[in-house]
């Protein structure tokens, strides 16, 4: 099995996630794009694990998943708190420091 197509796919997904973080305005969608980038990283890790013939890459991907779960829990709680006070989940609305 070839390694390069997997890595290129991983690079494409990572770039799309990065553009999404820059372009989207809804904080939840931005979060989803971050998840997409983490997933793209996982794909690269697992591909390299197969190419190298040991399981370290898979372990790393496993830890990435655990950290992503923790990050989502805290991040979504923060978004909820902001939404409760601001009635909006748009990142453009939280611009108080500007004024």
């Amino acid at each position: 099995m070839d390694t390069t197509p997997f890595i290129v796919l991983s690079a494409i997904l990572f770039s799309i996630g990065a553009v999404g973080v820059l372009v989207r305005r809804n904080a939840i969608v931005i979060f989803m794009c971050v998840e997409l980038m983490l997933n793209a990283g996982n794909l690269a890790l697992i591909t390299f694990a197969r190419a190298n013939g040991d399981l370290d890459g898979q372990i790393a991907a496993f830890f990435v998943m655990v950290v992503a779960a923790a990050e989502v829990v805290v991040g979504l709680a923060i978004i909820m708190t902001i939404f409760r006070t601001r009635r909006s989940a748009s990142v453009d609305d939280a611009s108080l420091l500007k004024y």
Partner: peptide
Amino acid sequence: AMGLAFLVLLTLGVAQVSVGVDQGL
């Protein structure tokens, strides 16, 4: 545009790396 540039950079860099023989698991 930046995303596209990033993608091209990443793909070129990654495609030039030789991973060697695929060991398999």
